[in-house]
């Protein structure tokens, strides 16, 4: 399935684009999606286990992904 990955701040500048599309199997874990991203040219510096959100909630690397899920990479936050 095609999965759209949202990018913000530091990570957005790697592309640079507000999102990137990847192809993963249905039921792939977040960890697999990240590995797919890290295999793309220019993405070598992405951490192996970056903080992520699935459907706008912080999620763990073993979380499974399904069609329509919103995966977002969350660089170190600096609000306030």
């Amino acid at each position: 399935m095609r999965l759209s990955v949202l990018l913000f701040a530091h990570y957005r500048e790697l592309v640079p684009s507000p999102s990137v599309e990847i192809e993963v199997r249905t039921g792939a874990t977040v960890r697999e999606a990240i590995a797919r991203l890290r295999a793309m040219p220019g993405w070598e510096d992405l951490p192996e286990e970056p903080t992520v959100a699935v459907n706008r909630e912080y999620s763990q690397p073993d979380r499974e992904l399904h069609a329509g899920d919103e995966l977002a990479l969350i660089p170190p936050v600096a609000g306030g």
């Binding site: 913000f8 701040a9 530091h10 959100a53 912080y58 977002a72 969350i74 660089p75 936050v77 600096a78 609000g79 306030g80």
Partner: peptide, 14 residues
């Protein structure tokens, strides 16, 4: 609230 904002809120500043 302010401490959790600093830790968790998905906001970035340049």
């Amino acid at each position: 609230v302010i401490e959790e904002i600093k830790k968790r809120l998905p906001v970035w500043k340049r």
